[in-house]
Amino acid sequence: MQIQRAVIATIEFQPGVPLVQQIVDQLSVAISQGGLPHGAKLPPTRELSDLMSVGKSTVVDALDRLRAKGLVVSRQGSGHYVHRSSTTIKTDAGPDLQPQDTLSVVRRAVLLDNVSYVSGFSKTLTANSRVSYAVLSPQLAARLVALKMACGGMTSELAEQIICTMLSDGSYAKHTRRTVDRLYESSSRVTSWLEEAGCSVSSLPGEGLFIWTRLPEGLHAETLARKGLEIDLVLAPGTLLSKAPSASHFLRFNVAHSDNSQVRERFFRLLDS
């Protein structure tokens, strides 16, 4: 640890450049040149703050960016470490945007490069972003880029640059971690009061933006949704989203919107009416 402290203490700041960027740049050089050995543990955040005479939030931001570049890894309850194979990591590579659920991981393992993903940032950032992405094999990606150029497809360069910066400096990864944590907490609360109301929920907390719930015996989703409108409660019956015969027994709840005491109170009132 003494070596790490000595290297970090030598960081010097120049005016006109953000402190976070200077920390990231100088630590990146120290890692690439061996000043900070691979696998070495970094001092705690508070100590890093004291060594460099900067605020704790600046250190946290810098560590997030180093982690996004693949130079640093964090271990729960243990701290931050220099990546063991930093020399082999392409620091200009973006984050892994592939789904990490079990089914997706197995599908990629079996089908290899024959799996493609198309998505966007409207759900995770803002509906106004109007920026999408595709995760493809290198060969298919090259063909798609050539096709886009040939068709003259134009997208907002400003929006693309903003999102590119967020992906590169670790901001997006930090934002999604916080969003997933909040989604999990909200999902747990909504699931709890739905089960208290007598509904059955098959999905686990944090599995997505929506919860599918089966209504208590004898209740019809469309009938309940129509009655809900009378008390300013908008519900999504399963029949709007599925043609399955059993869909009339299900409602779909938006996790974020349903984690609300008024929604809970009105739904209980609706079931009691």
Score class of each variant (00 low, 15 high):
residue 90 K to C: 12
residue 249 H to D: 12
residue 69 K to Y: 01
residue 261 S to G: 05
residue 249 H to M: 08
residue 74 S to K: 01
residue 58 T to N: 03
residue 57 S to N: 05
residue 4 Q to P: 03
residue 28 S to R: 13
residue 29 V to N: 05
residue 143 R to I: 05
residue 196 E to I: 01
residue 103 L to A: 14
residue 183 L to C: 09
residue 172 Y to T: 08
residue 273 S to C: 09
residue 226 R to W: 09
residue 173 A to R: 13
residue 74 S to R: 03
residue 40 A to K: 02
residue 127 A to Y: 10
residue 95 P to R: 08
residue 73 V to G: 04
residue 79 G to H: 01
residue 140 L to A: 13
residue 55 G to P: 03
residue 85 S to I: 09
residue 80 H to N: 12
residue 30 A to H: 14
residue 67 R to M: 08
residue 155 T to Q: 07
residue 177 R to I: 13
residue 259 D to I: 05
residue 47 E to V: 02
residue 73 V to K: 01
residue 12 E to D: 07
residue 102 T to C: 07
residue 259 D to G: 06
residue 151 C to R: 15
residue 247 A to E: 09
residue 225 A to M: 07
residue 47 E to S: 04
residue 237 P to H: 06
residue 259 D to A: 07
residue 9 A to Y: 10
residue 205 P to W: 08
residue 254 N to T: 11
residue 29 V to D: 05
residue 82 V to W: 03
residue 51 L to C: 03
residue 196 E to C: 00
residue 241 L to T: 06
residue 34 G to Q: 04
residue 28 S to F: 09
residue 46 R to D: 00
residue 34 G to K: 05
residue 229 L to T: 02
residue 185 E to A: 09
residue 119 S to W: 14
residue 99 P to L: 11
residue 78 S to Y: 06
residue 23 I to C: 07
residue 55 G to R: 02
residue 159 A to S: 14
residue 229 L to D: 03
residue 115 V to C: 06
residue 166 M to W: 15
residue 150 A to N: 15
residue 210 F to M: 13
residue 68 A to R: 00
residue 66 L to V: 02
residue 44 P to V: 10
residue 251 L to T: 00
residue 143 R to W: 07
residue 30 A to M: 13
residue 130 R to C: 11
residue 255 V to M: 10
residue 107 R to T: 15
residue 115 V to A: 05
residue 268 F to T: 02
residue 227 K to T: 04
residue 113 D to A: 14
residue 154 M to N: 09
residue 183 L to I: 11
residue 90 K to E: 10
residue 204 L to D: 12
